[in-house]
Amino acid sequence: MQGVVKVNSALNMRSGPGSNYGVIGTLRNNDKVEIIKEVDGWYEIRFNGKVGYASKSYITIVN
């Protein structure tokens, strides 16, 4: 499943599904990501070869 990031500035990509996990990357508005699965309001995603987590509130699913 594919998604597009929708933010005003930047979205942190984290090592786990929560804001208490470390930041491993930064996503920008309109970045395209691969959604692997949903975990407690977060998406596990793949972006630029990295796998991490981002809040699903800021990612819109596209077909």
Rank of each mutant, 00 (worst) to 15 (best):
K37E: 09
N48F: 13
G52W: 02
I36S: 05
F47I: 12
N20V: 07
K56C: 05
G25D: 14
V51N: 15
R46P: 06
S57K: 12
E38P: 04
V39A: 07
F47V: 12
G22F: 10
V51Y: 12
K56L: 07
S57D: 15
I61D: 05
V4Y: 04
G3M: 03
T60K: 08
I24W: 02
S57L: 13
E44Q: 09
G16N: 03
I24L: 10
I24H: 03
V51A: 13
M13T: 03
R28G: 12
G22Y: 10
G49K: 09
V4P: 01
S19R: 11
E34Q: 05
I24V: 15
N20F: 11
V7P: 04
N29F: 10
P17C: 02
V5I: 08
S19W: 10
R46I: 15
G25E: 11
T26M: 09
Y43C: 04
M13K: 00
G25P: 00
K50D: 14
T26I: 15
I61S: 05
E38V: 07
Y43H: 02
N30G: 14
T60R: 12
S55T: 11
V33F: 05
K37S: 14
N30C: 05
L27M: 10
Y58I: 04
I59R: 00
T26Q: 09
V51E: 10
V5K: 01
V33Y: 02
Y43E: 00
T26W: 09
Y21F: 14
V7W: 04
N63A: 12
N20L: 08
K56N: 08
T60G: 10
S57C: 07
V4S: 07
I35T: 02
R14Q: 07
S55K: 12
V5S: 02
N8P: 11
R14L: 15
G3C: 03
N30T: 08
V4T: 10
G49N: 12
V7F: 05
R14E: 02
V23T: 10
G25Y: 08
E44R: 04
V51R: 07
P17N: 02
G22N: 13
E34L: 06
S15C: 05
S19F: 14
A10N: 11
N29P: 08
N29W: 08
G16P: 00
E38F: 06
Y58C: 04
N29R: 06
S57P: 12
K50H: 12
E44P: 00
G3T: 03
E38G: 05
E34G: 04
A54P: 00
V39N: 07
L27G: 01
L11Q: 10
G18M: 02
I35A: 02
R46G: 10
I36A: 05
A10D: 14
G41T: 09
G18F: 02
R28M: 15
N29Q: 09
G52P: 00
R14M: 15
W42G: 00
Y21H: 10
A54T: 15
N20H: 15
E34S: 05
M13E: 00
G3Q: 03
K56G: 07
Q2G: 09
E34T: 05
S55N: 15
E34V: 05
K6G: 08
E34P: 03
I35V: 10
D31N: 07
N63I: 11
D40G: 09
V23W: 05
G41R: 06
N12W: 08
A54M: 07
E34C: 04
L11C: 06
K32V: 15
Y43K: 01
I36P: 01
K32C: 05
A54N: 00
R28V: 14
V7K: 09
D31W: 05
R46T: 15
V23Q: 06
I61P: 11
I45W: 00
G52A: 09
R46L: 15
S15T: 10
G52D: 00
G25L: 11
S55H: 13
A10G: 13
Y53M: 02
T26H: 15
W42I: 01
V23E: 06
V62Y: 09
W42M: 03
N8M: 11
A10H: 13
A10M: 13
I59T: 02
N63W: 02
V39I: 14
S15P: 01
E38K: 04
V4I: 15
N12P: 15
I61Y: 07
K6N: 14
E38Q: 08
N48H: 13
E34W: 06
I35M: 04
P17Q: 01
Y43L: 11
V5Y: 00
S57A: 14
